[in-house]
Amino acid sequence: MSKNYMPEVARMLGVEIGEPFDVFDDEGAPIWLLHYLLCGKNTLQKRPWRPKEGDSFFYVLTNGEIQKYVFEIDNIHTLMLFSFGNCFPTEEAAEAAVPEMMAKFEEIKKGVRE
Rank of each mutant, 00 (worst) to 15 (best):
L61Q: 14
E53Q: 15
V23R: 07
T78Y: 02
F24V: 15
M6N: 14
Q67I: 05
N75C: 13
G64A: 10
A103T: 09
K68V: 13
M102G: 03
V70G: 05
A10Y: 06
G54D: 08
I73C: 08
Q45N: 08
A94H: 02
P20D: 06
L13C: 04
S2E: 13
L38D: 02
S2L: 12
W32C: 09
L37S: 01
N4D: 14
E8T: 15
E100P: 00
L34Y: 08
I66R: 04
S56C: 12
L38C: 08
L79C: 09
F71G: 00
T43I: 12
D26G: 11
L44K: 06
P48W: 00
K68M: 14
T78S: 15
F88S: 01
L38H: 11
A103Y: 00
A103W: 01
A94P: 03
D22Q: 12
R113W: 06
L79P: 03
S83I: 06
L44R: 10
V60I: 08
P48M: 01
R11V: 05
R113M: 12
K3R: 14
E107N: 11
M12W: 07
I66L: 07
E16H: 09
Y69P: 00
P51T: 07
V70H: 06
G18R: 09
T78I: 05
P51V: 05
L33H: 11
D22Y: 06
E100G: 04
T78H: 02
I31V: 13
M6R: 13
I17M: 12
E95M: 08
E53P: 03
Y36N: 12
E114Y: 08
W49T: 01
F21W: 05
I73L: 09
K46Q: 11
M102Q: 09
Y5I: 14
F57M: 10
V98S: 03
G111M: 11
G54M: 03
T62M: 12
V9G: 01
L38M: 15
Y36I: 05
G28H: 03
G18F: 06
D25L: 04
V9Q: 07
P89I: 04
F88Y: 15
V15K: 05
A96C: 06
E16S: 12
W49D: 00
E72T: 09
G14V: 04
I76E: 13
I66A: 03
P51W: 02
I76Y: 08
S2A: 14
E27T: 15
M1W: 08
A96I: 01
E95R: 14
E53T: 05
L81H: 03
A10S: 10
G64E: 10
K104M: 10
V15S: 05
A96D: 09
E16Y: 08
D22N: 10
A29T: 15
Q45M: 10
E107L: 11
G14R: 03
K109Q: 11
F84P: 00
H35A: 12
N75F: 06
L81Y: 01
V112P: 01
E100H: 06
L13M: 08
D74W: 09
E8M: 13
E100D: 10
Y69V: 09
P99K: 00
F88M: 01
M80H: 09
A97S: 10
G64L: 10
D55R: 08
C87P: 01
E8D: 14
R50D: 02
F71W: 07
A10E: 03
G111R: 13
H35I: 09
G111W: 07
V15E: 02
M6Q: 13
L61P: 00
M12E: 12
K52S: 15
D22F: 05
P99N: 03
C39Y: 10
R50K: 13
